[in-house]
Amino acid sequence: MKSRVWLRWFVVTIGLAAVIHVAVVWLVPVVIMRVFMSRVAAQYGVNRVITQPLPTDLSRTVVKPSPDLLYGVCVFDVSAGPVRLSIMPPTTYWSLSLFDTNTDNFFTFNANDLKVSTADLMLGSAGDSGDAAARFPSARFVVTPHNKGVMLARLLVLDKTNMDEALAAQKSIQCNAIKRGS
């Protein structure tokens, strides 16, 4: 009788552990992204570009930064209207990548996608696409899975010779909220 009681507690413990395990795994990316986004938003605001110099050992905001890339970060929020992203691309590697709140990289734009000299993207909900297309015909419209997310620009610095060009491109990154119908 006593052994059956212990067996029941054991089964309950393992079952509960399985449920918590799944919850932890599911929550880790969501919580880490939310913490990152809320910290950036609190310090710099949303729909604003933050730039940093080349990462070093002192760069400890995000794990595994590449020391060969200049980054530009923007926490976007399209709930009040579309957000326009743009960059004057350098001649070396660059990309604008968009991340959902669960770490998924749902869109990336790079030199291979470029048709004109400025990369011009409009982020928003599906309902904003018609208005955005009419007002900003040159911009490529991207529907975001959720209202909030992160844009990360990467600019390659192969060596010191292209540093100035990469810095100029980093400075050119725009991430601006556009009012609906304005």
Partner: peptide, 19 residues
Amino acid sequence: PYTRARVALTGLFALNPSE
């Protein structure tokens, strides 16, 4: 979910393999 959690812990903002 396991890949997403690992990315968050060890390589946040990793790009997808096409990039």
